[in-house]
Amino acid sequence: MNLDRRHFLVMLPAAAIAWKYVLAGTPEASPNYTMTDHWWSMLIDIPKCIGCGNCVRACAAENDVPEGHFRTWVERYLVTDWHMESPEVISPDGGKEGFPAAAEEANGKYFFVPKLCNHCTNSPCTQVCPVGATFITPDGVVLVDQTYCLGCAYCVQACPYGCRYIHPEKKVADKCTLCYHRITKGLTTACCENCPTGARQLVDLKDPSDPIHAFLKTHYVQVLKPQMATGAKVFYNELDGSVR
């Protein structure tokens, strides 16, 4: 224990420096981060999700998400037998406080589906913004310039996934930033950092050493609403066809 304490005391200044470094500057200012070297997205491994709501809470705490609005949320599906067109879906308070216990369903299956902005390559929301207040960055993240947004809500209407909302106080469009302030500093997103089972993983499609490439080689994945042809980049492993 004594050794640990000494270790701790030795490490303290180093940690402080590391932390200052983590906090430092913008991507342009940081020599370690070049936007064009990255193409961010996320992998959701549905069989691993336990519906604890950690991601929803973490997102709200990290990004000051206003009450009653969600940058990410979790849905619980119940699909009985072959009735894929009429699943029973719940998401109480976005799954923020988890889900009520479910009793065994003899003729059906349960599963959880975490949702977030798909950071689409051909995003319908950025397409319709009248002034260029929302855009996809060179590293593949769809962001909102909240000092420029009119609050016309056209982007909210254009998103097929319901990922956007108008911030009740700021009166501008708000949405998942893929924790852009974290991923540009070498950290993962708040939701991925706090997912206890690894059901959510930040991926960098431009990084050849990212485990996503091996994963995609051996798994069958899907994006949400592929018929929308939005170029959605959030990949779901073992996504059921009833999910919309």
């Binding site: 913008t26 991507p27 200012a29 705490a61 990290e62 996809i136 960055t137 962001l143 310039d145 000092t147």
Partner: peptide, 20 residues
């Protein structure tokens, strides 16, 4: 692109709450 380039840096500079 058709947006304020400086916005990227401003968003990247938002405060962290989770240290990692």
């Amino acid at each position: 692109g058709h947006y304020r380039g400086a916005a990227i840096g401003e968003i990247a500079a938002r405060p962290l709450h989770y240290a990692g």
